[in-house]
Write a protein that binds this DNA or RNA. Sequence first.
DNA 1: CGAAAACTTGATTGTTCTCAAGAACAGTGG
DNA 2: CCACTGTTCTTGAGAACAATCAAGTTTTCG
Lengths: 241, 241
Amino acid sequence: MPHIDAFVKKLSRYCALNQADLSVLRELQGPVREFSRGTEIGDEYEERTDAYILLDGWVHNYKLTRDGGRQIINFPVAGDIIGLRSLILPVASYASITLTNVTVCLIPRERLVDVMTRFTHIAASILWTQAHEEAITVEHLVSVGRRTALERVAHLLVELVYRLRLSGLASGWTYDCPLGQHELADALGLSVVHINRVLRQLREREIVTFRQNRVVIHDIAALREVAGFDSSYLDPEGVLE
Amino acid sequence: MPHIDAFVKKLSRYCALNQADLSVLRELQGPVREFSRGTEIGDEYEERTDAYILLDGWVHNYKLTRDGGRQIINFPVAGDIIGLRSLILPVASYASITLTNVTVCLIPRERLVDVMTRFTHIAASILWTQAHEEAITVEHLVSVGRRTALERVAHLLVELVYRLRLSGLASGWTYDCPLGQHELADALGLSVVHINRVLRQLREREIVTFRQNRVVIHDIAALREVAGFDSSYLDPEGVLE
DNA sequence: CGAAAACTTGATTGTTCTCAAGAACAGTGG
DNA sequence: CCACTGTTCTTGAGAACAATCAAGTTTTCG
């Protein structure tokens, strides 16, 4: 089973988990499911009653506007939970579509509710991941509202490398990134053309190269500087660096 | 005690509350505190360990950027909970400052945790308010990322009137709104000057007038149309209209 | 009543968008 | 393995929306 460790690793960052907690987490796991690239996770026509742990692959959550525009809310990566809100709210506030072939582990609603009421450690960890994700969304809002195009692109590329490192999915300053320029544009509130120009600038200044679904950060210090990146929203305890 | 009803009303929209639940909610209430205009809620220097129910007044949550810019995340109004995340996460991801004199009711951390573990109804309601707030933040991100200046301003003014109506704080299409143009600008990712021009345009088209801390919507249908407003994120059950 | 803050308006600048067209790349069937 | 075809990327030129700069005006508050 690929990468279930990423999820456990993430939870244990928030709260020390003992042997009992770990076995409860195992109890939480439902069947593994696969989604091919470009398909919706869950089902947009019926109410979503289950959540998923993303084991492998990339997803994007987004909303469409009246005139056909798309705003991407976030990019869950392996180890993240998808659709936790749908356990609480009757309607999802956005759609989730895969960007690659994806493997998930289904979490049945009843089992999750049961575990969270019986094990406060687990409940706290899961609420913590939620708060963490919300902090990422807030930082995203800051980017789109108050940063220049260059800063936005740089900020997203730095954020992704740190998130992947926290999940153990990137070691150096290089990572596989299946996002196209269209996705970057719709995430950052910019046009595809402008994304292209900004990426060129970052490449020519030898700060970061993003080509063929691969991000190579040549100068992480310069990239952080350009982005005005402050890691505290990802990393309250300062584990990073 | 002003407006505690707004909070109970909000919770009961999510989940039918019986007599026992209501008395538990009463048990949750801690001391009432006052903050004067322009002061930080909680304390930025010590860890925030308590949450507050906003009873009266307006607040804004925001983050500052490196170069002194401000991005406003949201505007809690009476009946909203402030700082719930701080019960979970050790560090708040943004600051909260009052826009008016404010009355809050403190919720001690231990009591909240205790009540939420013992009463799943209450816990569900509170998580539901959280999910609701997150949906508002997501819609905010859509505004800033993919809507024009006119749409953004219109959207915020419509959202506020509906939120106030849901809390019973506005009856017609008119409401008191202590936001200055500087606050609108920093919420919507625009300059103060441009906010001013957009407000003038909305006024000249006789759609909405925002003057002297008072919003008067002359034509709610036109305003919704301009904003591209879809109320489902505020109102899953379609109670509005 | 006076001072500071908030709002208003015009003129100019600039970042980003749109339109347009060519180049590189990826997937498909022969 | 290659030609074909659609998708994604790249670059240029011009237009547009919103920012900045600068100066009044009104409102608020002590």
